[in-house]
Structure formats: C-alpha cells, structure tokens
Amino acid sequence: SYERAFETLVAGVRMRAPMMRIHTVAAGGGSVLSFDGTRMRVGPRSAGADPGPACYRRGGPLTVTDANVMTGKLLPDLFPHLFGPGGNAPPDEAVVRQGFAALASEIGGGIEAVEVADGFLRIAVENMAQAIKKISVQRGYDVSDYALACFGGAGGQHACLVADALGMKRVILHPLAGVLSAYGMGLADIRAHREQSLNLPLSGDAVAALDQTIDKLAAAAREEVAAQDIA
C-alpha cells in the first residue's frame, strides 16, 4: 500500500493537503550547473524548457542535460532538428564544449572539461540516490529488495547509475517514461478533498453536527469538481 502524508514541506513551503509521501530533489535535466569558487553545485535553479539547457540554442546555462552531451551520453546527431529560435536546428554541441572548457579553466588544477561534466553528473546521481534513501532506507526499507522505477525525460540517462549507487539490481523503464507524469494525471481519478475539525463532546448533538458538516463538505467538494467542467 502507498504511504500518505497530510502535511508536507516542499521547497520550503508547508502544504497541508493529502498526498502520497514523496520527496523531491533538484536534479533534473534542466538543473543548472555552477561553481561557487569552492564547490560544484547541481541545482536548485532550473533552466526549465525556455531557455532550457545551453545545447537548446536559446542562450541557456549549462545543465545536467549538457553534461550528458559533453560526456557522450546524449548524441546531438540522433536528435530531431527542433532547437534554436527557429526550431529547425540540432542541439548545439559546440556551445556545450565551450561552456565546460570555461568552467574547467575557472576550477583550475588542470582538470579537463569532460571531467568537469562527469563530476557534475556524479553529484546529480548522488543527489537522486540520497533523495530515495530519505524515503526508504531512513524509514527502514532495504532498497536492494526493490526495483527502481524510472520516468521523466532524463530519467533513462541516470537510472542505472542511481540503481548502482543504491545497490539495486533492477530498473523498470515504462514505454511512456518521458511523459509518465502527464500520463498518470490523465488516468488518475478526479477527486476533491475536504476536511474540518469539530471540537464537540461526543453526544447525540455532536452526531447531528457531524452529519451537517459532512453534507456541507461533500457539497463543496462536488461543486469544486463540477467547476472544472470535466466530462
């Protein structure tokens, strides 16, 4: 069965709503790579889809996606020509190489540009692994007994590395992994939740008050669903 939480802290914002117990981490394909003078960092800022990673040809910053291009895990020649202002160019490998060369020069110590990219990927993988440990190992689950479910546009680029970091032997890659969140939303039941506390002595009057409150909450939930105009 799935664990549910009724109060969750997401990106510093406390949300009081029933949801699955999940933990998020900024380590997606658009997570920005940076060097603050002492440490290499992945995220929490994201380039998003626009401007997107540097290789998208829209002037974006270096991201995890660019690190995969730099290390040869993403091959621009195999991508459709959908990038750039006109949406008719392949990913820009040259600007990625220039960006990592500049970062390598900034970091110093004779490090190569491809080593910088690989280092950022290692950090991203470790961030993902730690996020999984937070909701599994720290709660008493042995992840080596489970399969790693991979989804997201960049999920397949890191799934095996994350599984290795966690000692997991199997990875499940859904055929629609790149759009799995949207696919799940499309299949999910349409629901509205309402809750309210009543501080009353347990008596016949309390039961009547409960019935009235339940009717009121149910009406509000039905009204919310109806307002979404979903057939």
Rank of each mutant, 00 (worst) to 15 (best):
S1F: 03
R4E: 04
G12E: 09
M15P: 00
A17T: 03
A17F: 14
M19S: 13
V32R: 02
D36Q: 02
T38C: 06
R41S: 05
A47P: 10
P51R: 08
R57P: 00
R57C: 01
T65P: 10
D66H: 09
V69E: 06
L74I: 15
L75H: 13
F79G: 00
H81W: 01
G84R: 01
G87E: 06
D92E: 04
D92Q: 05
F100S: 05
A102W: 08
L103Y: 03
S105K: 09
S105M: 07
I107G: 01
E112D: 07
A113P: 07
A113L: 11
G119K: 03
L121Q: 14
N127A: 06
Q130L: 13
I135S: 01
V137G: 02
D145Y: 00
G152K: 03
G156T: 15
C160K: 10
A165V: 01
M168I: 01
A177F: 05
M185Y: 04
R194K: 14
Q196M: 10
L198E: 01
L202Y: 15
D205A: 15
V207Q: 11
L210M: 15
A219V: 12
A220H: 13
A220Q: 15
E224Q: 15
A226F: 13
A227C: 08
D229Y: 08
D229F: 08
A231V: 05
